[in-house]
Nucleic acid binder design. Structure first.
Length: 698
DNA sequence: TTAAGCTTTCTTTTT
DNA sequence: GAAAGCTTAA
């Protein structure tokens, strides 16, 4: 805590360190933390790398460090907490609040993307945007790319030109890995190499159209944040002064842009108060440009950096840890670490072979109920899988048996068509230049398709305020049958622009649905209209606390919450099993974990593991799944599976199971009980005689 | 130019 | 087994 006295004739600064003993903290850090953790919590200012193994109390350590710093007088607003999901950010700020009652609501916490959106707004003009820029989600980007392709008159049919989502994936991968587009095309999309030139034309057009539409996609949020820090020293200074404590969680999964943002944030400060936390063994986002190289080279980039290790595992039984260690040991590119178990011996890990995915689902459902009978709460259990569709059989089975569950994979709430349609109206009120939203909204009208929408945009898109321009149009000239809809839409736009509505996202949403006639669109387009209308009311409810459309949209476009029914209404039924992709399960833990679908080519995924690096990432993913379990781990693989067109094919169990030495687990073979007898005795027997109706809830 | 109806394609993970 | 694509009628 003391600084070197400068050798200049300036007044000599002498820092008096606090007397440690006299400092009485509200939290008893010494008692609640182990030595490894305490070292991190009390580490002096300056760059620090924390290599934290699975289950080593990483989040706990971060929470305690933030608390300790606040207790030492750091203003909560000085913190910048960069996490991997917004869920993780909320969790951490909540826990700090619970620990010392500090209000971290004023700290800046969230994903790189959501923090970027908040930081960039006041500086938007410096980057060539307006303050009211909107965020394009991947679907918006896809639409804009397809529009660019068609406007450039590229013959898509004859040469199989890449679709919007492929173009977007390609571009995004190039950006996030820092490789030039031609290289990415040559190496990862060789079948499009002959069309490199038109592809680059489309991408250039896309970039220009985004700026013209005053919109940023996810990658732009990162790129522009980096640009702002790199090119505007004054702004960088202001931001660095504001964030005097930078903490980055899940640092193994940052890409080169994110790593550079962090480097720039603290570049000119002394000491550089940055702490990054990560575990190379849990890096699972290389497919989107993450590279744990940033973690490995951190000490080189930050001379004088302190390196801490958290290697004591508090989470799992030695049985689970032994299996995890044996698995990850198969990876070549790794940095061996020892996870020291602290818990006593528990039950063996189970590897169960089910005859097919139906029996797999029945087995898991039955085991969940048995565990509940043993006194465990359903909320202490989770079922994890590689890909969302692997959960479908289980969802059916759980519904049939009336077991409540929550899904954390698949379609996100805000990605659903009806939600996006309504949001497009709001985006236009905020940013009238949003071409994608404009076309999306127009195409909802009868007799208006791609073509008509494009014609209207050509008419008004260049205007200072395209919506204003649209309101002035005379719809008499529009195609017959479309006129009424256009007039009504104009009224809706006008209403949304009135102050009373533009200040209330919730009322705006209700206006679009009720007065704007969107409810009719829902009813005519989808047969589950009622549930979609319920979603929209839930959306309005969710929007209630927001005073501006701007803040609401910012939150919503980067929110990433899945469709799981009660996520929005906040209905907290804690008695629920979690069904999650392993990616979404990162950082979480449950007493009992089931991993299903452990079949070769599905997990490891055939496409992802075409090269050694990909296979190793799959194995890290397996490791992440395994290390989520505290007490019990059950690994299930169906011996046969329905293939694409309903044919039952024999499957091979995952190599991640086959490569493990037998003594690390107990093997179960499942048999389905005879229909009449339905014995309930051996736990490895699956009863299938439950009545179809008797247990159904809902 | 839109919209409906039939055919083909593709299913990884996510901010 | 769904979503996107293509074809054809209005």
């Amino acid at each position: 805590m003391s600084s070197d006295p400068p050798a200049r004739p300036a007044p000599r600064r002498y820092v008096v360190a606090r007397t440690p003993a006299s400092k009485s903290y509200r939290v008893d850090y010494a008692r609640e933390l182990n030595e490894e953790q305490k070292a991190v919590v009390f580490a002096a200012d300056g760059p620090a790398l924390v290599v934290a193994g699975a289950g080593s109390g990483k989040t706990r350590t971060l929470v305690y460090r933030v608390s300790r710093l606040i207790e030492d007088g750091i203003d909560p607003t000085a913190f910048l907490l960069l996490t991997f999901t917004n869920r993780a950010a909320r969790e951490m700020t909540k826990r700090v609040g619970q620990l010392i009652g500090a209000d971290l609501g004023r700290a800046t916490a969230g994903t790189f993307h959501s923090v970027a959106a908040r930081i960039l707004r006041p500086y938007a003009e410096l980057l060539g945007y307006r303050q009211n820029f909107t965020i394009l989600d991947p679907e918006d980007a896809k639409d804009l790319l397809e529009s660019a392709t068609s406007d450039l008159g590229i013959p898509i049919a004859e040469r199989r030109f890449p679709k919007g989502d492929v173009l977007h994936a390609l571009l995004s991968f190039a950006i996030n890995t820092g490789r030039p587009v031609p290289d990415v095309v040559a190496e990862d999309y060789p079948h499009f190499i002959a069309q490199l030139e038109p592809i680059q034309k489309v991408l250039a057009q896309f970039a220009a159209r985004k700026v013209a539409a005053n919109g940023m996609d996810y990658d732009d949020l990162l790129l522009n944040w980096k640009r702002l820090l790199a090119e505007q020293p004054a702004v960088r200074g202001a931001i660095s002064r504001r964030f005097r404590q930078v903490l980055v969680d899940e640092y193994q999964d940052v890409n080169h842009i994110q790593a550079e943002i962090v480097d720039l944030l603290v570049r000119d400060t002394d000491p550089r108060r940055v702490m990054v936390v990560g575990d190379d063994a849990q890096s699972i986002y290389a497919f989107r440009g993450a590279d744990y190289e940033a973690l490995l080279t951190f000490p080189d980039r930050y001379p004088g950096c302190s390196v801490f290790r958290l290697e004591t595992n508090y989470r799992s039984t030695p049985e689970i840890l032994a299996l995890a260690d044996a698995s990850i040991a198969q990876n070549q590119r790794r940095f061996p670490k020892i996870l020291k178990p602290t818990r006593g011996s528990g039950v063996p890990v189970v590897v169960a072979g089910a005859s097919d995915s139906t029996q797999e689902a029945q087995f898991v459902a039955q085991r969940l109920l048995e565990l509940r009978d043993e006194g465990k709460s359903l909320s202490d259990m989770a079922v994890l899988y590689r890909a969302h569709h692997q959960s479908l059989d289980l969802q059916l089975e759980l519904t049939r048996r009336g077991i409540p569950f929550e899904i954390r994979s698949g379609m996100r709430f805000f990605e659903q068509a009806h939600v996006k349609d309504v949001l497009a109206h709001l985006k236009l009120t905020l940013n009238p230049k949003d071409e994608t939203s404009f076309k999306r909204v127009l195409k909802l009208l009868p007799k208006v398709g791609e073509r008509t929408a494009a014609t209207f945009w050509t008419a008004v898109g260049e205007k200072q305020d395209p919506i204003e321009g649209f309101l002035r149009l005379d719809f008499k000239k529009a195609p017959q049958g479309a006129q009424k809809g256009l007039e009504k839409l104009a009224e809706t736009f006008a209403a949304l622009r009135r102050k009373s509505l533009s200040d209330s996202p919730a009322e705006s949403i209700r206006h679009v649905v009720a007065d704007g006639g969107y409810a009719e669109v829902v009813k005519s387009r989808w047969d589950n209209a009622a549930s979609r209308l319920d979603d929209l009311e839930a959306l309005a409810q969710f929007a209630m606390p927001y005073e501006s459309v701007e803040r609401f949209l910012e939150e919503v476009m980067l929110y990433g919450e899945t469709t799981g029914e009660e996520t929005l209404s906040g209905e907290k039924d804690d008695e629920k099993v979690v069904l999650s992709s392993i990616h979404q399960a990162k950082g979480l833990e449950w007493r009992a974990v089931f991993m299903i679908g452990l079949v070769e080519d599905r997990f490891p995924n055939a496409r992802a593991s075409r090269n050694e690096a990909g296979l190793e990432e799959e194995r890290r993913l397996f490791y992440v799944g395994v290390t989520r379990a505290k007490d019990e781990l059950t690994l299930v693989h169906p011996l046969a599976q329905l293939d694409r067109y309903g044919m039952l094919v024999v499957t091979e169990s995952s190599r991640f199971l086959r490569e493990l030495p037998e003594p690390l687990y107990e093997r179960w073979v499942l048999e389905t009980a005879a229909p009449e007898a339905a014995p309930k005795l051996p736990s490895a027997t699956v009863a299938t005689d439950f009545g179809d109706d008797e247990d159904v809830v809902n």
